[in-house]
Design a protein around this nucleic acid. Sequence first.
RNA 1: GUGUUGACUAG
Length: 280
Amino acid sequence: TYCYNAVIYGFCCNNELYEATRVFLEMKSYGVSPDVYSYSILIDGFCKKKDVMRGFDFLEEMEMGNTRPGLVIYNILLDSLCNCREVELALKLFHEIKASGYKLDRISYNILIDGFCKQGDMDSALRHFKEMIKMNFDPDVFTFTSLIHGYCKMGCLEKALEIIELALGQGVSLDTVSCSVIIEGFCKEECIEEALMLMDEMRDLGIIPNSFSYNAIINRLCKEWKSGKALEVFPLMLKRSVAPSIVTYNTLIDGFAKELNLKQAYKIYAGMLKHGITPD
RNA sequence: GUGUUGACUAG
């Protein structure tokens, strides 16, 4: 079963769901029973392709057989519903899970909170945030990042900053992802200076920036028709051994093209090819 | 020993 699961997982990661399903059926035909891992891997594969229905089909199959779906499977389905913008259905499932005697966990709450944040429903997000604390699940950096991102997206930088204080007060440290989200938030509000200051603070705190962190700044500068300035960020990235990603290149090319500096745009394109990145 | 949650460009 371990062997089959690994293969199914591999196909799912490659988005080859058809192959994954074939292996799943094959293992059954050889008399090897799929376990709860086999199901969760496959269900997650379909769910990530937004085929939640198929996920529920497998859930049903599992319930008919002798495999008891665990909380992980329900979390996968919850997340998928949220990603299909069906947070209301996710909430419904959330309550059904609770009613059927499963103990939800921190991840279940994180999924639901993130779903509300993505929908811009910060009130519901906060309500479940409080509920999670009441249930004695400590919010982690995932929880806080979702909330911060939610507030940043709706332009409530002050609220986002309050959440950061809350996190730090609870002893939850920021990491690369959460800092990048905040940098993006600053950039969105045209506070490049603050964004750059945060980059410095990251350095002092030993939080390694990645291309996401820099891309936020580059993107902001390009949006302000300052592609030249944006290009100056490039060496800073290299100095800290952060490799530019395809998004970095796309952003800069778009910025220069917009300014009709096609020569520079082409130079960046050429540099991208030289670094072995395939244009998309 | 295997599975689930947070971030960037353009479309």
